[in-house]
Amino acid sequence: MGVATMTRPAEDQRPDRLTAIAAGEIVPAVVHPEVAGESPVLEIDAFNLWYGPKRVLFDVGLAVPKGKVTALIGPSGCGKSTLLRGVNRMNDLIDGVKTTGDMRLAGDSIYGRNVDVIELRRRMGMVFQKSNPFPMSIRDNVTYALQINGERNRSVLDSVCRRALEGSALWDEVSDRLGDSALGLSGGQQQRLCIARAIAAEPEVLLMDEPCSALDPLATSRVEELILALRGEYTVLIVTHNMQQASRVSDYTAFMYLGQVVEYGPTAKLFTNPRLRETEDYITGRFG
């Protein structure tokens, strides 16, 4: 790591960067040039968010590249889940949330004045920290997004169900009991079912909020394999606490601290040769 420190450009050597952020100062993120070479499907522009009087996101800017897996890492309370939930406006459900700035999904404003939030959410999928299958059959769970959209055609639903379950590597395990309650599946299966549900409607962005934190190592590795398999076909934005997981599954990584993006770049570079010492300290476990 000593080598990495030597190669850092001079402007990234500010020693008090995290202190400044902690003091409430807005420090521009260090963005690696590789990011600019990608075509972004989701762009976040100077996004701010308050829970009541408490500001939790500070001028966050992030371009999520199409067809890639982007990981959000950072210590607890740094706002990465809030940012993720901001993308499909799940924060709207919480009283007292105020936002400024905007995000764009394939060029369409997310926080604009006349945005249909329901329509917007249909273009995204979301997988939560704790698996949340609905109290209905496996088939109904997977095709939920289509059914609420008015799709009634049984053959369409069946083919979507099969494709999504195959996509989430669950088909072989449940193909003979699609009519059974989803609540009878194991924890890992439930989470993969939730992934199947999220990808069934072919979302433009798949949001994952610590999808493996409640799973055992075996189930975790299955979900990680799944994320790797989804790469290319889907754009994935994933929040994780697990550095190894971020390095294994993601193409790009953004390191956040106290509501600000500190460093954003290709995962390989961020993990082996970060431009900031703060990032290196966090990744190597020296703080956070």
Binding site: R121, M124, N132, F134, P135, Y144, I148, C194
Partner: peptide, 27 residues
């Protein structure tokens, strides 16, 4: 009924009534 279930339904693009009718009430 866990909030996570409601969130899961909203995240799929369900309206409030769809969420109530298909997820919350059955549960």
């Amino acid at each position: 009924v866990p909030t996570s279930m409601r969130e899961g339904s909203f995240a799929c693009g369900a309206t409030q009534w769809q969420t109530i009718r298909r997820v919350v009430l059955p549960r």
